[in-house]
């Protein structure tokens, strides 16, 4: 299962190499350069998506694991160190963890890793909650911001 996205990425990279060779042969001044450029742009998009699929295949399980860990840790923290003010960061972290748990890789080309970062930040926030109480929610927010910046830009 894991080999298949790799094979597809290799295929795509090969196709891109062929398109690039045609593009280089034509040179920027030639009349069919724009057409070749558009074709190559399509190939590049395909390569990027193939790489994203590789990343997605690689990161699905780790992302889910981190999110599940976050959820469990949140439960432990809520029960063990109950505090109204801490509840904020824990709830935020649980929300992020739920989002990552439901869809561990997302759809954008940079999203798998961004989701890993967000889930890791949420886990860190939960672990910090006994020490930093509600202030730990800043870590969650930072993770979400990183995720959004990576995905939307």
């Amino acid at each position: 299962m894991a080999a298949e996205p790799f094979a597809r990425l290799a295929d795509r990279q090969h196709a891109l190499r062929t398109a690039l060779r045609a593009l280089q042969a034509a040179g920027p001044g030639s009349p069919d350069f724009p057409v070749l450029l558009a074709e190559t742009a399509k190939e590049v998009e395909a390569v990027m998506h193939a790489r994203r699929d590789v990343e997605a295949a690689r990161l699905t399980v780790p992302n889910r694991a981190i999110a599940a860990g976050t959820a469990i840790a949140a439960l432990v923290v809520v029960i063990g160190w109950f505090d109204g003010w801490s509840l904020l960061s824990v709830l935020l972290a649980v929300a992020v963890a739920a989002a990552v748990l439901v869809d561990p890789v997302g759809r954008g080309i940079w999203e798998p890793r961004a989701r890993t970062a967000a889930a890791a930040a949420a886990l860190l926030a939960v672990v910090l909650t006994p020490l930093a109480n509600g202030w730990a929610s800043l870590a969650v927010l930072a993770g979400v911001a990183w995720w959004a910046w990576r995905t939307l830009r």
């Binding site: 790799f6 990425l9 891109l16 690039l20 190559t40 590049v44 790489r51 990343e55 940079w110």
Partner: peptide
């Protein structure tokens, strides 16, 4: 840009 695309064909997938 063509050089950059050329590099895309050889990069390992996790060098984000």
């Amino acid at each position: 840009a063509i050089d950059a695309a050329e590099a895309l064909t050889t990069l390992p997938p996790n060098a984000e």
